[in-house]
């Protein structure tokens, strides 16, 4: 009888440990995408990652046919403004939070002009923007990030070697910077 209690106790304990481990991994994993990017790429700059080659991958399971570029941000210092001209062929821009959630993505199919002009804001900055310039019309795409820290991932397909030059040239024209916010008192007037 006592062994039955023991067994039930062990199974219950194993279950609790199993579930808490699974839930904790995204928070404590030392080699998640954010940790690798934060270790190698400066904040608030548009960084073109080297094409994935054996032993030179910034992140595991990178597609060697994709030119990845990353822009790491921290919205507590202000909203992020991104302006980019994107290549013909496949491209996409995705926003990923520090904890690994992809909160936004857009591909070339959805934006046929091949240009991107957007701002990433946290919820407070979203509110400030809607108070400040509700009348203003612009082509700026504003997206809300659920966390202050994160990064944007730009992917361009290098289907043939000749596409690489064009993609690299366009990458040089990309701007990715923190915007200075007007003081909150001013914005409210």
């Amino acid at each position: 009888m006592r062994w039955v209690f023991w067994l039930v106790g062990v199974i219950a304990l194993a279950g609790v440990i199993h579930i808490s481990t699974i839930l904790a991994i995204p928070r404590i994993a030392p080699f998640d995408a954010w940790s690798r990017i934060a270790a190698q790429i400066p904040e608030k700059s548009f960084s073109v990652l080297p094409l994935a080659r054996p032993g030179e991958e910034v992140i595991p399971l990178m597609d060697p046919a994709i030119q990845y570029s990353v822009c790491r941000y921290d919205l507590s210092e202000g909203p992020l403004h991104v302006e980019a001209v994107l290549p013909h062929g496949y491209w996409s821009v995705a926003g990923q939070t520090r904890s690994g959630i992809v909160f936004y993505s857009v591909t070339g199919q959805a934006s046929p002009t091949g240009r991107i002009n957007m701002e990433v804001r946290n919820s407070d900055q979203m509110r400030e923007k809607s108070l400040a310039d509700s009348e203003e019309k612009d082509d700026m795409l504003t997206i809300e990030a659920p966390e202050n820290q994160g990064f944007l991932v730009f992917r361009s397909l290098v289907a043939t070697a000749s596409m690489l030059g064009q993609i690299e040239d366009l990458a040089k024209q990309t701007a990715c910077e923190t915007v200075a916010e007007p003081a909150p008192a001013q914005a409210a007037q």
Partner: peptide, 27 residues
């Protein structure tokens, strides 16, 4: 994978491999 409401096992696997998921319609 990569979505906010992915199941905990999918989220844990992604955090462990540390790759960049193609999510949200990008592929």
């Amino acid at each position: 994978a990569g979505e906010a409401d992915a199941d905990p096992y999918t989220r844990a696997s992604l955090a462990r491999t540390g790759d960049l998921p193609l999510a949200g319609g990008a592929g």
